[in-house]
Simulated scan of single mutants.
Amino acid sequence: MPSGPRPDPDGDPVLARRAQIARWVDLGQRLGYGLFGLAIVAFLVGFVVGLEDWVVTLIVACLVVGSIVLAPAIVFGYAVKAADRADRDDDW
């Protein structure tokens, strides 16, 4: 998610909170995309070996949890980037 130099959050509670949200966004995106990747791998393995019930359950669970985690992470990621851009361009 790093998109360039970030302002120093020391002393500014808004920037500190934004940096904290950016860390959570990064974690959420890694987790969400990781779960999507795991679902793909499980599907490919299940396709080759045989789609048993537990494999299908794993795939569906990864897709559902990945979507629940990834959707807000993407939205908040755009919000953090927009706030950084507005600070940088002094465009409030």
Rank of each mutant, 00 (worst) to 15 (best):
M1C: 03
G4R: 04
G4I: 03
P5M: 02
P5W: 00
P7H: 01
D8I: 00
P9C: 02
D10Q: 09
P13S: 07
L15E: 06
A16E: 11
R17I: 04
R18F: 03
A19F: 00
A22G: 04
R23T: 14
W24Q: 11
D26I: 08
D26W: 10
L27M: 14
L27I: 15
G28V: 10
G28T: 04
Y33C: 11
G34K: 07
G37A: 15
I40D: 12
A42I: 06
V45H: 10
F47E: 10
L51A: 03
D53K: 11
D53E: 11
W54Q: 12
W54C: 01
V56L: 13
T57F: 03
L58C: 13
L58W: 03
L58Y: 07
V60F: 10
C62R: 02
L63D: 05
L63R: 05
V65W: 02
G66M: 09
S67D: 08
S67P: 04
S67Y: 04
V69Y: 06
A71D: 11
P72H: 09
P72V: 06
A73D: 01
V75T: 14
G77Q: 01
G77I: 00
Y78K: 14
A79G: 12
K81P: 00
A82N: 13
D84L: 05
D84H: 11
D84E: 11
D91V: 07
W92F: 11
